[in-house]
Simulated assay, not measured.
Amino acid sequence: MSVELNHTIIHARDNRESAEFLAHILGLEVGTESGPFIPVATSNGVALDFAAIPAESIVMQHYAFLVSEEGFDAAFARIRQAGITYYADPHLKQPGEINHHYGGRGLHFMDPAGHGMEIITRPYESHEQTPTTS
């Protein structure tokens, strides 16, 4: 039996702002609004449906995106150009650094709703190498 993630709902204070923010960083398109949702589709077909809810109801979530080396370079350039603080670690203790976990590169940043976003060039299943930061 094949199982694939089709979509997930991401809570936001402003669904358009959050959808456009992530789409811009990742070089993706914002889809057509459908009811309370504004979708951003990933290249593997998973839709991230941004839904506006009251700010006090938002619970921080973590979303990690596997990107190519070229995709990382492009996203990293957009992050720096926008002046977004980025970190090598999910606890936000290493600002201005990227990591080199499992022989790749990765970084963490926050979206407008306070969710932790991560871009990585190697999946965490690549446990052959010890994580490092720079």
Rank of each mutant, 00 (worst) to 15 (best):
P123G: 15
H115I: 03
A55D: 15
A55F: 08
E128L: 12
E97A: 14
A41Y: 06
T132Q: 07
A55Y: 12
I10D: 01
R80D: 10
H100N: 08
G96S: 13
I84Q: 02
S34E: 15
V3C: 03
D49I: 10
F21N: 00
T121R: 04
G83H: 02
Y86G: 01
L48Y: 06
R16Q: 15
Y63G: 00
L107E: 04
I10W: 11
D49K: 14
Y63H: 05
G45E: 05
H100F: 04
R80S: 13
H115W: 02
Y87A: 11
V59W: 09
H24K: 11
G27H: 05
E128I: 08
S68E: 04
Y86C: 04
Y87M: 10
M60P: 05
A51N: 13
V40S: 09
I119D: 03
L22Q: 08
F50K: 08
A51H: 14
A64Y: 05
A41T: 12
I79F: 03
G71C: 03
P95R: 07
Q94V: 10
I25T: 05
D73K: 11
A47L: 15
H108I: 04
P112N: 05
H127I: 12
S43D: 11
P39K: 09
S126W: 07
G35K: 10
V30M: 03
L28I: 01
Y87Q: 05
E70Y: 00
F76A: 09
S134C: 10
V67D: 01
E97W: 12
G114C: 08
H100L: 09
V46Y: 11
H108D: 08
F72W: 06
I53L: 10
A52C: 13
G103K: 02
M60D: 06
G35D: 12
T8Y: 04
H127G: 04
G103F: 02
N15L: 13
H100T: 12
H115R: 07
T133Q: 04
E33W: 11
N44W: 02
A19F: 07
A23M: 04
I9A: 10
D89S: 14
K93I: 12
F21D: 00
P36C: 06
H11P: 10
D49C: 13
P39R: 11
I120E: 03
G96E: 08
A52H: 11
L92G: 11
A75E: 05
V30S: 03
P95A: 12
T42E: 00
Q61G: 07
L28A: 01
I38Q: 15
L92F: 15
I10F: 10
L22T: 04
R16I: 15
A47F: 13
S34N: 15
H62L: 02
I38D: 15
P36T: 08
F37T: 03
A74C: 01
L48W: 02
L66D: 06
G45V: 10
G114A: 09
H7K: 08
A41P: 00
A77T: 14
R105N: 07
A74M: 02
A74T: 06
Y86V: 00
I120M: 14
A41Q: 12
T85I: 14
Y87N: 02
H91M: 14
E4V: 07
G35T: 12
I38G: 12
P39C: 13
S2V: 14
I119N: 03
G106N: 03
M110L: 14
N6Y: 04
P39E: 13
T132W: 04
A47T: 15
I9T: 08
E29I: 03
